[in-house]
Amino acid sequence: MIDIRKLSKSYGSFQALHELDLEIPEGTVFGVVGANGAGKSTTFSILATLLPPSSGDALIGGASVRDSPEEVRRKVGYMPDFFGVYDQLKTEEYLDFYAASYGIALHGRGVLIGQLLELVNLSDKHDVYVDSLSRGMKQRLCLARSLIHDPQVLILDEPASGLDPRARVEMRGIMKRLKEMDKTVLISSHILPELAEMCDEIGVLDRGRLVARNSVREIHSRLKGDRMITVKLNGPSDEAVRFFENRPFVAGIAADPQVREVRFSFSGSEEEQAELLASASAEKFGVRSFSEEETDLEDVFMAITEGGSGQ
């Protein structure tokens, strides 16, 4: 559905995008992660036909942003990271204006607007001025606006930025409903755990290059590397230490006899880890519980982007 081919963009001597290649199949919710200046908004602006690429091209449903921007606009719903609203319009009027802007016939607009307001939980605000809406409500209204022409592709630039926790949860709920509607969604965020919940795949942009692209789970496991495992014991810890010392991929064993606990780092695969823990359970020292320190997605992101653009 989205096919980005060797897309480059430079601002004078600054190269914002370096021959970006990315293919996103239909119905995928794809998250883009990257630090400020990584090229996320530049990529999104090009896809929304607001910024011409320096070289390369991007196809949305087969339509080129370079050659057929009008067709791309019909297929794409875009929500920018920063946006304003027409404060003196009422919520319904705001959506009606955009419906008219997409050439939707007057007789069909009322029902459509009602459905969209329901989708973004703003049905009770249909007759209030946009000015009086909270930031979270305005974000949701903008999302409804981007859906008004039933686009195949949604491009959402930081849709949850600046929202309070409650508004974020509401936004996440709407994203899940969009996923059920089988839309192809390209979304960026700084709130990485949220992306992990919403997306099928995540791409990491760093200084204009896609340095990683995989499912959330795969990115986790790829970057887990050495992870810390804590084993709580029923019996004495010295026996457990001796057991783990002779095992492959295990290093840095530390024991705490008082709380009967052993901690070590493990560099093997997930299968090898499962095998190790199963064999430990069969030992005399007795295993009460295992725990693995969760690798935070932020840590993953930092690890990927630390390597710089040389990858």
Binding site: R73, F82, G84, S101, Y102, H149
Partner: peptide, 13 residues
């Protein structure tokens, strides 16, 4: 200035 232009330009008008 009010950051409404980009959204207007992405419509099919």
């Amino acid at each position: 200035e009010k950051q409404t232009l980009n959204m207007l330009l992405t419509t099919t008008q």
